[in-house]
Design a protein around this nucleic acid. Structure first.
Lengths: 215, 215
DNA sequence: CCAGCATTGTAGTCAATGACAACATTCGAG
DNA sequence: CTCGAATGTTGTCATTGACTACAATGCTGG
């Protein structure tokens, strides 16, 4: 591994993905070129083709990778861990780990938005629909996993009486929509004066209120 | 402007935009090439550059156009009518009266989702953040207009007691997020078994319940 | 140990594209 | 009518994705 000048790079595929994510974050998907990556890594212009059939395959792989880390963070948040990405968030979580469903749902939402604003271009990739059919299936599967994490929390909320009855998956879709949409607004600079955290809190309050059982 | 009265060789700019939107719908933004458009319209490959500084400028113009028609539809829906063809609007109306606020908000949401699923690639463009700085300002302005349409309905709802107190703009952001997010899920094929209309109704119900005052 | 073969990387090439420059045509104003 | 500004055309260049042929590497079975 880490062969610097050797003929075989050793782990070109991983290196490509790593560099690609950096470029994606820095310059967006438009600015991502296979030849550019090859240059950055000091390999020939055709080397990437050994690992990614075409440019779209690389983008698909990035999206898959993005969903995987997103899901990991969501799982962590759903389990009650208040940590989003970095340890420093300054929010004092009085409730213990795995506290009330509402609080954990809120934590989930915050984790999602954290990820979204930290990886805007990647999130774009993840939800944009021009993926190859084969990887599209994988992406859908990973997306469903995200939703399932939320749905399980919904079920638990239903058991504890915090959430109205109904198909947990459908309720999860609603919750997911709210949070994802908010992230989109934030990234599009449409929140303006409203600090994202404030918008987030209001959204969560409205969402949780709407999810509560009626009367 | 007003080149519509006297065009020597044809109204290329408008033709480009029209064709571009068609291509965008059919093949996505990736498949949109200036030279391709030129070919389609039977002009030379450099002709488009007379009307759009570069490819991004064309995409920006498409996004602007998209927001404009979206806002028109939202206004129409907010006014309470499903059928378009409203006369001269623009003047602030003192008291809207076309059904209860909840129903009109629901109509607004449906109008949005209709537009979204009918123009997925365009919506992508509208909310993707790689626009030139100058048109970016225009796009943000148009986005704010969309939000304002919702916010006005929120204000009205607050007067009639259907909506909790609070900054109408922030409440509109929450509502917008929910609906936009749902459209995203639908386009990403993450709703699966759930018919979009059903997911929409549930989302609206949860949203409206969450927006109601009291607790 | 080593011979063959799959893997991985290289060099060369091609068509498509965006961008730009120089030139041509058409319109409109003075 | 003439001149200048739009508007469109031809020519050109660098970049890119994709493909092909070839070379170096490393692994595996005999």
């Amino acid at each position: 591994m880490t062969g610097d000048g050797s003929y075989h790079h050793g782990n070109l595929r991983a290196a490509l993905l790593e560099r690609a994510e950096a470029v994606l974050t820095a310059s967006g998907a438009e600015g991502l070129s296979l030849r550019g990556l090859a240059r950055d890594l000091g390999v020939s212009h055709a080397a990437p083709s050994r690992h990614f059939r075409d440019r779209q395959a690389l983008l698909d792989a990035l999206a898959v990778s993005g969903f995987t880390t997103l899901n990991a963070r969501l799982r962590s948040a759903a389990a009650g861990g208040a940590d989003g990405a970095d340890g420093a968030d300054g929010v004092d979580e009085t409730a213990g780990a795995a506290g009330p469903v509402g609080a954990r749902l809120a934590g989930l939402g915050r984790a999602y938005v954290d990820f979204a604003v930290g990886h805007t271009a990647l999130l774009d990739l993840m939800f944009t629909v021009k993926h190859a059919d084969d990887s599209s299936a994988e992406l859908r599967e990973l997306g469903h996993e995200s939703l399932l994490i939320v749905a399980r929390l919904m079920e638990e909320g239903q058991r504890t009486g915090a959430v109205r009855p109904g198909d947990p998956v459908q309720l999860a879709q609603v919750a997911f929509s709210t949070v994802h949409g908010l992230a989109t607004l934030a990234v599009a600079a449409l929140l303006d004066d409203t600090p994202l955290s404030e918008a987030m809190e209001l959204a969560l309050e409205v969402l949780l209120a709407g999810l509560r059982p009626g009367r």
